[in-house]
């Protein structure tokens, strides 16, 4: 009989405590986010796929086609191409392809960029039925963003 009555007493008490806790929670407001109806705002440090940064006035990419990002990428998902700038010195970006299927979002490309030309996007709605949708043309994306700005 040792502990028999105390077991019953303590047990019943803890059961009632549990019921009271859930009863309290029952009347508290909902904490979950109703995703398709409520769109979350992303935190500043959210790491989406990378995107190019455009010049604030002209909108042209800051990229100078140094190729550091391409070299820094451990999974070789960046391929970029440039040509000699008309008139001035340096190069102009003509294509910047990101193969997001291989990207592990390590961020080495963003770190390696010395010209403030790359950053993480805030894009999180990434779902598709087609693998090819994830081979992204970042230059086109920048152009679209510029068009949206105007």
């Amino acid at each position: 009989m040792n502990g028999y009555w105390s077991d019953i007493f303590i047990g019943s008490k803890s059961l009632v405590t549990g019921l009271l806790i859930t009863a309290r929670e029952f009347f508290k407001p909902v904490v979950t986010e109703q995703y398709p109806y409520e769109v979350p705002t992303m935190t500043p440090l959210f790491r989406g796929h990378i995107e190019l940064i455009g010049n604030e006035e002209t909108g042209a990419p800051n990229c100078v086609v140094c190729g550091m990002c391409q070299r820094a990428c451990p999974s070789e998902c960046i391929s970029l191409d440039g040509k000699k700038a008309e008139g001035g010195k340096g190069k102009v970006l003509i294509s910047y392809m990101l193969d997001f299927t291989k990207c592990s979002l390590c961020g080495s490309c963003v770190e390696s960029c010395n010209f403030n030309a790359l950053r993480f996007s805030k894009e999180y709605n990434l779902a598709s039925f087609d693998k090819n949708d994830f081979i992204m043309d970042l230059l086109k994306r920048l152009e679209d963003q510029n068009r949206c700005k105007q």
Partner: peptide, 13 residues
């Protein structure tokens, strides 16, 4: 619905 309320969700909607 009850389970959802207790877990502070909405449940079937």
């Amino acid at each position: 619905k009850g389970a959802a309320r207790i877990q502070r969700r909405i449940g079937p909607c």
